[in-house]
């Protein structure tokens, strides 16, 4: 399932549809509808526009992540949401465009990724229970939960690293078997 964090529907053309095109995932839910649906499968929480911070006012809708057992990938705002739900904090840090990605821990999801496209004004401080798996010069770029298949990435894989999304979907399929 894909969760849109876009306050403006027009932004979904840019932040949700490219992920739908890569993953072929057809179930899309807007975060404001999360209290009306049963979430019991792999989820990707997509990013949103640079000017959009609205999702930060609705973090309560994501509290289910605390006890969630299925694979989760939070992209940009999705990563910020994961970090906040698990007790982390945000810091103001802007990255726009391509950045170099340095791996802190080896992880199959990020294998071979050396550059990525960023578009954010907030970065995260590592939440308890997570490890940093990649960073750029200025920000944490990827985190992973120590016990659950839960990832957060600050960059937008749909722009230059679609293989990451394929790997995440495969991870979900492997865990299902």
């Amino acid at each position: 399932m894909i969760i849109s964090t876009c306050h403006e529907r027009l932004s979904e053309e840019e932040f949700v549809k490219p992920i739908v095109a890569i993953t072929k995932e057809r179930k899309i839910v807007h975060y404001l509808e999360l209290d009306k649906v049963k979430v019991d499968e792999l989820i990707i929480i997509c990013g949103t526009a640079l000017a959009d911070d609205e999702y930060l006012k609705h973090l309560g809708l994501f509290r289910f992540l605390k006890d969630f057992k299925h694979p989760v990938l939070g992209i940009c705002s999705g990563m910020q949401i994961i970090a906040m739900v698990f007790g982390g904090k945000l810091a103001r840090k802007t990255e726009i465009g391509m950045v170099k990605v340095k791996h802190s821990h080896r992880d199959r999801l990020l294998e071979g990724i050396g550059e990525a496209y960023c578009l954010h004004n907030n970065s995260i401080l590592l939440p308890p229970g997570f490890i940093e798996i990649a960073k750029s010069e200025d920000c944490i770029q990827a985190i992973k939960h120590k016990e659950k298949p839960m990832y957060g990435i600050m960059f937008h894989p749909e722009v230059r690293n679609p293989e990451l999304l394929d790997r995440f979907i495969k991870l979900g399929l492997n865990l299902k078997q």
Binding site: E8, E13, E14, K17, A51, I96, L119, N121, V159
Partner: peptide, 23 residues
């Protein structure tokens, strides 16, 4: 895209790219 995003961000404007990554 990045250059225009930077300008909009500096000016406090939203930036929409509705054809982004379209086949």
């Amino acid at each position: 895209a990045a250059r225009i995003q930077e300008i909009c961000n500096d000016l406090g404007l939203w930036c929409f790219n509705p054809l982004w990554k379209k086949d």
